[in-house]
Amino acid sequence: MRTALQAGDRVVVTGAGGFLGRRLVERLRADGIDVLTAGRGDGFDLLADALPLDGVAHVFHLAAETGVPDAWNDPVRFHLVNTHGTVRVLDQCRRAGCSLTYVGAYIYGVPQTLPIDEQHRVDANNPYAFSKWMGEQACEWYAGLYAMDVVAIRLFNTYGPGQSDRFLIPKIVDQVLDPATPAIELMDLQPRRDYLYVDDAVEALIRSRAVDGYALYNVGSGQSHSVSEVVETVMAVSGVRKPVVDLQRQRPNEIPDVRADCAHIGQACGWSARVGLAEGIARMLEGRSP
């Protein structure tokens, strides 16, 4: 394995202004790493601009179009950014001699078995998942044909402070804490997901960087929780109780249950999730009052 990042090393983080990107940049800088950011907030265009790779040892590639509903409306845009944009990043890393971490997504569709390991068949059942899978395929191709060091992460449902309320857990937290909201309304209380606290995700990205060649890892908590269980956890942690309204509107191509098998990254990198759901939600609630 390559040596881990050391204080003074220089890295690039694409998508540095996003939820996960901000947390990763904070952690790297706290560790003394010289971080260059490349995101929309920096005026960086993934499809046109060159990465600042002078003296850079590694690139964490997080920049992407996100959101399954938006992907259904504009699949071409998602493919351009998430697939072609990733190819552009890979090729620049190839020319500069940089290693790369690619942050992918859940691409297994409805699981045939639980927990889900990396050998489970892929079923990219929405345009977002398809675009991220194609980006992952490009990573494996470049790593194999150009002998690059590339780590691809299949990241499960990450949550934490600062996440947009377009995502489930922040949406629930906002409804629970808002005194003007008399009841919590949610589309469907049944689906179960593997929720991973953001700091655990960051730790996985940093630890897995030292792997040589091509590696592919699931990164999740290894536990699944229903929407109903998440609501109950938020109310229990906050001390606020409200009625819960289940609108019973199932999303297209809904997946009933998701749970990651993360044994591979555990064995290779010594990583495992540390923060349980109740603790993660408690951290989200710090400094907020009902």
Score class of each variant (00 low, 15 high):
Gly17Leu: 00
Gly17Ala: 04
Gly18Arg: 02
Phe19Pro: 01
Phe19Asp: 03
Phe19Ile: 03
Leu20Pro: 02
Leu20Asp: 01
Arg22Phe: 10
Leu24Gln: 04
Leu24Arg: 03
Val25Arg: 04
Val25Asp: 02
Glu26Ala: 14
Glu26Gly: 03
Leu28Ile: 08
Arg29Pro: 10
Arg29Lys: 15
Ala30Cys: 11
Asp31Trp: 12
Asp31Arg: 15
Asp31Gln: 15
Asp31Ser: 13
Gly32Lys: 12
Gly32Asn: 12
Ile33Cys: 07
Asp34Ala: 09
Gly39Lys: 00
Gly39Thr: 03
Arg40Ile: 00
Gly41Asp: 04
Asp42Thr: 15
Asp42Val: 11
Asp42Gly: 10
Asp42Ala: 15
Gly43Glu: 06
Phe44Leu: 01
Phe44Ile: 00
Asp45Cys: 00
Leu46Thr: 01
Leu47Phe: 07
Leu51Pro: 07
Pro52Asp: 05
Pro52Asn: 09
Leu53Trp: 05
Val56Ala: 13
Val59Asn: 04
Phe60Gly: 01
Phe60Arg: 07
His61Ser: 02
His61Phe: 00
His61Met: 01
Ala64Val: 01
Ala64Ser: 12
Ala64Cys: 09
Glu65Leu: 14
Glu65Gly: 02
Thr66Asn: 08
Gly67Ala: 14
Asp70Arg: 11
Trp72Glu: 08
Asn73Arg: 06
Pro75Thr: 03
Val76Cys: 10
Arg77Tyr: 00
His79Arg: 07
Thr83Phe: 08
Thr83Cys: 14
His84Phe: 13
His84Cys: 12
Gly85Glu: 02
Thr86Ala: 14
Thr86Gln: 07
Val87His: 05
Arg88Ile: 09
Val89Tyr: 00
Val89Cys: 08
Asp91Leu: 04
Asp91Gly: 05
Gln92Trp: 04
Gln92Asn: 12
Arg94Val: 05
Arg94Asp: 05
Arg94Tyr: 06
Ala96Lys: 08
Ala96Trp: 05
Ala96Phe: 09
Gly97Asn: 09
Gly97Met: 08
Ser99Met: 06
Ser99Pro: 11
Ser99Gly: 15
Ser99Phe: 04
Leu100Glu: 05
Tyr102Arg: 06
Val103Asn: 04
Gly104Phe: 10
Gly104Ala: 10
Ala105Pro: 05
Ile107Gly: 03
Gly109Asp: 11
Gly109Phe: 12
Gly109His: 12
Gly109Glu: 09
Pro111Arg: 14
Pro111Gln: 14
Leu114Asn: 12
Pro115Asp: 10
Asp117Ile: 09
Asp117Val: 12
Asp117Glu: 13
Gln119Pro: 00
Gln119Ala: 14
Arg121Gln: 14
Val122Met: 08
Asp123Thr: 10
Asn125Glu: 03
Pro127Met: 07
Pro127Arg: 07
Ala129Pro: 02
Ala129Leu: 06
Ala129Gln: 11
Ala129Tyr: 06
Phe130Gly: 06
Ser131Ile: 00
Lys132Thr: 02
Met134Ala: 14
Met134Ser: 10
Met134Phe: 08
Gly135Arg: 00
Glu136Tyr: 13
Gln137Gly: 05
Gln137Leu: 13
Gln137Met: 15
Gln137Arg: 15
Cys139Glu: 06
Glu140Ser: 13
